[in-house]
Design a protein around this nucleic acid. Structure first.
Lengths: 188, 188
DNA sequence: TAGAGCATGTAATAGGTTACATGATTAG
DNA sequence: CTAATCATGTAACCTATTACATGCTCTA
């Protein structure tokens, strides 16, 4: 019933690799999870405070000459337990909100050319994502082969590749359909 | 800069087909857009009120013997204009939050069997979605062939099919990888 | 007679982003 | 000299769900 705060687990999962500050967490999410996850500072800092209050992490303030102090958090045994529990629990069904599909669904209200534009721009978006994921995959295979977490990272990147490919293929199919509709104007 | 309320456009898009109540909107979203969109009453009713206040719709209260009155909203010309503008505007990049990938990314913290369980359950989820979308596709082809909006509906359903297939294929690939890891325990 | 469907809506709460505030250092 | 990076955090705001409140009718 209760909606769970997933940000909490994203942060605990990253802290399980080693102590980090809120700033580090933000960077790590952008680099490692950007594909399928995001968090803003407005979420990260309050959640990290709550984590320390609950005893799932400990806080350590490090002096940083010139720059602001670093608030470094370390996961506790209790924190690892909570993380482990979540990792083995059942996962809620995926919920997507795909704006371009909403626009296409209401396509009757605009010209075929406008719908085409939307699908073509969506296609371009995923062509670029695909390129990006393939580069990350190469990098992980070449330069991270010795990291024990590398197989898991490759699996998540691979999901991005499958999904972006599916989107591109769907776009190609849809662009074809729309072009046929342009050529055969039997719509009143 | 400003984050836009997309609920507004989902509702306007449905009202463009004909007058509806909040209750009707909820049903229509579940049936027609459930694949890639959702709205709760807590969003729908306030947004529909705001729409009327802005002059994008008009409100009409219909007596409904025995049952509660129906508040039926009709889109105005101004409403159609606003809808049209949004439909032709550029669309924000897609942002996904895939919980199962977060769990897999942190796979090092649990056994391979636990990761396998997560991926297998995700696979099952999309096998069922796929079956569902294929049934809807059949229905649209058989019983809605004469509807001028049918081609657009088919395109959005097709996207669900492509994406669910991609997820299932990724699961198969990932399950294989995890099984190989179980058999070759070279992880410290 | 219990539950589902019809039909409205609000209040409490949670989830999440953006803008703002501060201020030093470093790279171009 | 300008912009980015480092680094913290809060406040305002928007987005969204869930639970609650009401009450009739029809079906199993």
């Amino acid at each position: 019933m209760a909606r769970e705060n997933k940000s909490k687990y994203a942060i605990l999962g990253l802290l399980a690799r080693g102590p980090m500050s809120g700033y580090d967490i933000k960077k790590s999410i952008e680099i490692g999870l950007g594909n399928f996850w995001s968090e803003s500072y407005g979420q990260i800092y309050p959640v990290m405070n709550a984590l320390a209050d609950e005893g799932l992490t400990t806080r350590d303030i490090q002096k940083n000459d010139g720059k602001p102090d670093r608030h470094v958090y370390t996961i506790t045994d209790k924190g690892r337990e909570v993380l482990h529990k979540w990792l083995t629990e059942s996962t809620e069904p995926l919920k997507l909100r795909v704006e371009v599909l909403l626009k296409l669904f209401f396509g009757k209200n605009v010209s075929l050319e406008e719908s085409l534009k939307q699908v073509e721009s969506f296609r371009q978006e995923h062509i670029e994502k695909l390129k990006h994921y393939l580069a990350i995959e190469e990098y992980l295979k070449q330069d991270r082969a010795d990291n024990p977490e590398q197989p898991y990272w490759l699996m998540t990147v691979s999901c991005g590749i499958w999904v972006s490919r599916a989107f591109v293929d769907w776009c190609d199919e849809t662009i074809e359909k729309l072009k046929v509709m342009v050529e055969t104007p039997n719509n009143q």
